[in-house]
Design a protein around this nucleic acid. Sequence first.
DNA 1: ACCATTTGGTTGATGTGTCATCCAACTTAG
DNA 2: CTAAGTTGGATGACACATCAACCAAATGGT
Lengths: 154, 154
Amino acid sequence: MNATPRWLNPEQQAAWDGFIRMQEKLIGRLSRRVQADSRMSPADYIVLAKLTEAGGRMRFMDLTKLVEWEKSRMSHQVARMAKRGLVAKEECPDDGRGSFIVATPAGREAIEEAAPVHVEHVRRLFIDALTQEELDTLARISNRVLAHLEKQPD
Amino acid sequence: MNATPRWLNPEQQAAWDGFIRMQEKLIGRLSRRVQADSRMSPADYIVLAKLTEAGGRMRFMDLTKLVEWEKSRMSHQVARMAKRGLVAKEECPDDGRGSFIVATPAGREAIEEAAPVHVEHVRRLFIDALTQEELDTLARISNRVLAHLEKQPD
DNA sequence: ACCATTTGGTTGATGTGTCATCCAACTTAG
DNA sequence: CTAAGTTGGATGACACATCAACCAAATGGT
C-alpha cells in the first residue's frame, strides 16, 4: 500500500503525454491513409509485406514469430485474408498439425501496389518532420526502451 | 505513376522500424497491465481520467473533444461504460439534443484506484528506461511530429 | 415564418485484438 | 512402448474502432 503515489514530474508528464499523443495521431493517420488508398488494413499490409519479403511461403508459426504477434491474432488475421484471397493455406507434409501460408498472386499484386504508397506516407508524415539527427536519436531512444522492456518482468 | 519509388535509406528505415516496434510493445504491455490489475480497458481509463479531472460531469461533445476522439467512438464507449456502471448519462435542459456524462461513485472509485497503478507502470516501463535528457528530447521530437502532422493535409 | 445547414448524438455493420479453451500431432522420459 | 508434456493451430466470446447513415434539435439567412 503506497501511501503517496509518486506522480510524474512535469517534464516526465510532458514526455509521456507528447509521446502518446504523437503516436496515436501518427499511427491513426497512417493507417487511415493505407486503408483508403490500398484497400488493405495495416495488419494485412504488414503480414503480406513480411510474408512476401520472406519468399511468399512460410510456416504459420514462423510467420507469427516474424511479425511478433500472438498466434491467435495471426490465426484470425490469416483466416480473414484467406477469405479475401490475399493468402492461401496449404497443408504441411512434414508436420501433420502444421500449415503453410502462401501469398496468392492477388496478394503479391496488392502488396506491390501498396508498398510504395505506404513508404510515401511514412516519409511524408514522419520522416519529413524530422532531421536525420533527430531520426537517429529517436532510433536510439526506441532501442533503449525496447531493451528496457525486455529486461522488465511482464 | 512513380517509376522508382524512393525507399527509405537504412537510417530512416531503422528509425521507423524501431519506433514502430517500441511503440507497439510499450503500448501493448501497458494496456495489458492496466487491464489486468484494474479491470479497466485503456479506453475506460482515459475517459474516466479526463472526465473526473474535469470535475466528473461534462457535456458529451466536450468530453469527446477533450479526449480527441470521434464522437461515434465515444458514444459506443460511453454506452459500454454506462452499462458497467462507471458513468451515467443525464439529459441537458439547455439543449434538447445534448447530454451530460457523469462519473458515478463506482467510476470515481475505479479511477482513483487505477491511477496510481497506471502511473507506476508508466514509470517502470517507460520513464525508468530513459534519462531526463532523453525524455526531453523525445518530448521535443514528439511535438515536432505533431506540429508537422497538423500542417500536413489529411 | 421558413427553409437550409450545422450540431449533438445514436445506431448497425464490419473488421480487428485478446483471452481462454480446445484438440490433434509431435516429442521425450522412463 | 507408453504416458506426460509440449507445440501448432483453430475457435468462440467479447471489447473495441471505424464508417456510413441517420435523426432531432438548434441556428442562421432571407
